[in-house]
Design a binder for these strands. Sequence first.
DNA 1: GTCTATAGCTGGATAGAC
DNA 2: GTCTATCCAGCTATAGAC
Lengths: 204, 204
Amino acid sequence: MSDDVKRRSGRHHGDLRRVLEQAALELVATKGVGGFTMAEASRRAGVSVAAPYKHYADRDALLAALATRAYTEQREQYRAVMAGAADPGEQLAAFAAAYVQFAADHPALFELTFAAGLDKARFPALAEAGQALFAELSAPARALCDDEYHARRLVLAIAACAHGHAVFLTEGVLTDEVNPLSFAKREAAAAASVLIAAYRAALA
Amino acid sequence: MSDDVKRRSGRHHGDLRRVLEQAALELVATKGVGGFTMAEASRRAGVSVAAPYKHYADRDALLAALATRAYTEQREQYRAVMAGAADPGEQLAAFAAAYVQFAADHPALFELTFAAGLDKARFPALAEAGQALFAELSAPARALCDDEYHARRLVLAIAACAHGHAVFLTEGVLTDEVNPLSFAKREAAAAASVLIAAYRAALA
DNA sequence: GTCTATAGCTGGATAGAC
DNA sequence: GTCTATCCAGCTATAGAC
């Protein structure tokens, strides 16, 4: 055996986090958060069941790391799509569509953000990432509403509609549609536009 | 020991289903669907772990029975509140508020309807109850839209918004509000009204 | 219809070797 | 940093007594 093939034990030096989180995501995507186990994720990553505990204190710590990533990746996505929109109203409509798209592209990350039952007090980074995401959306909303309170209401309304459509999409409620994804995106964006127009009219 | 106290074994003759389902609901309400186990539900119901299997084939069968009840109870609720509304538009707005109220009143039943991961092909009664619920909402929507397709779109849009607000409420996103429940109900109903007006304008 | 008892399995987490 | 081995806990479902 040539020495370019080192010993079989001691794999994944340094990148076990990455490999393990990828395996965990695929596991959550197929079996849901409830179906996720450290043991199964370890098997899929090709390491022993003990290895992950050198990188994560426990099961929840691994899930929290993934959920935090879910928030930061969404933030980047929404920042990008909003940068390409002409005005604050179109930015929020683009966000709504992108929210649905994210749920379709990354069902595991999407589920982790609201169904993992994680204790935000225990994982401050998770809470911070969530707040940073919300703050990203507040900028265009404030441009439309002036005062803070109505901006918050508008963001919540648009996000609620987008979330509902995303859940309907991932739960199979829309399977009757010819293209469930594009239907959900279109409806979420349309709802956002309608809500924005109504809020502007109410404030005028 | 007087004979009005019969032997301790053999309790719950005939009503174990009811007692067990109540215990299961409280368990789901506190620990979520993933935290539900037959063993814990049995303990809370005061019976052995074997007793439930005389009434339910397995764990999923019990959850499916609860989820089916969740659909039928929601159907009754919405039918009742819609009966008190003046026109189809107000009926759907009342539904949106009632949807949020149901999530607040029965968090376990609410969670079961979309997070239990039940196989609808295995539990036909569950699928039927869900369709009956949707049909209940289609009546007012058809009165507003004439054609079937737009009625379906409208119901989905209103339900999506209501669902989003309900999830935000139950997940603690609205804890900053003075009264999260009334806020969510008001916003869900307002979104419904706005969506209805927009659909009517688009069809005119 | 419920019990006791149990088989069989799976998972979380740790100890100690390398 | 990863492994092997292990402990302990908990759950699902069944068998057979009453």
